[in-house]
Design a protein around this nucleic acid. Structure first.
Lengths: 147, 147
DNA sequence: GCTTGACCTCAAGTTGACTTGAAGTCGTAG
DNA sequence: CTACGACTTCAAGTCAACTTGAGGTCAAGC
């Protein structure tokens, strides 16, 4: 049992954000001590997961979707695999961008948009994106996540 | 020379967004035909790069920073390498999340927060994050990018 | 027993990244 | 030559993800 300040300090997530996360149902405080929320240590793990998901580019809504409605992960296996595949693709994007950057850092061409290697990198990317139909993520956000 | 509709169609980026990007100085139209903006084909490449950067989790401000103030990439090599290293780290995050997801998809434990393998994954991540000091990206957004 | 500091609520403000809408301007096809 | 459709501007709206501020509560130390 920790109160919000301790959670904030340990997770490096500000109290205001923690309250916000609780409000939208992403995390839960287990009880109150007077007015004060009391959090179980589990919340730290969950916050790690949330941060991880955020850096991976998921919205809070999507992250919430990864835990079941009731608060614990509870998703069909194939959906999880689909997410994992999304991540895989995103890693490829990242690698492409990283390589582009590294190249730009060393390339002696006057303008990088004219460097053939650079253009080839981008063409490849464009092709990849266009080939994959639309990959829409179906953003239909209702006001509250945990409803 | 294309006008905005063609750019939109080819890049799959809506006209409103293209105007917005121009307004904030991310892209440039090369001239006008009557009122209509005329874009050079180069803009398509630049838009690929922008999309790439976005999926990599950069803000438009950061992306703008990757091109020089004048519109073409023009950044010190070590800054580029630093960006590339950021990407490297972000790829690791992604891989971790992907592995976590894959694991969850197969793990038979009742609640994943209790599965030791899962906890180990997260602990590792937490350690990595905490070990690296703060890694702050210095978000100091002024109203317009290209200024 | 009272002050202090860490918490509380609730409403409103902020930022980034766009989108939407109203009202206007073109150039080309019929 | 006029009507149409593709563009234009500019202001305002939207959404996610928070942060800030005013005013209030509480338990613990002096």
């Amino acid at each position: 049992m920790m109160d919000i300040g301790e959670v904030a300090e340990r997770s490096r997530v500000p109290p205001s954000t923690l309250r916000y996360y609780e409000e939208i149902g992403l995390i839960r405080s287990i009880s109150r001590h007077g007015l004060r929320r009391q959090f179980d240590a589990d919340v730290l793990l969950k916050l790690s997961l949330i941060e991880l998901g955020k850096t991976a580019g998921f919205s809070l809504t999507e992250i919430a979707g990864m835990f079941g409605k009731d608060g614990r992960p509870n998703i069909p296996r194939d959906q999880l695999h689909a997410k994992a595949d999304d991540l895989q693709r995103q890693m490829l994007d990242l690698r492409m961008l990283r390589d582009a950057l590294r190249h730009v850092a060393e390339c002696p061409a006057p303008s990088h948009l004219e460097c053939p290697t650079f253009r080839k990198l981008l063409k490849a990317e464009t092709r990849r994106r266009v080939t994959r139909p639309a990959s829409g993520s179906g953003r239909r956000g209702s006001s509250r996540l945990g409803e």
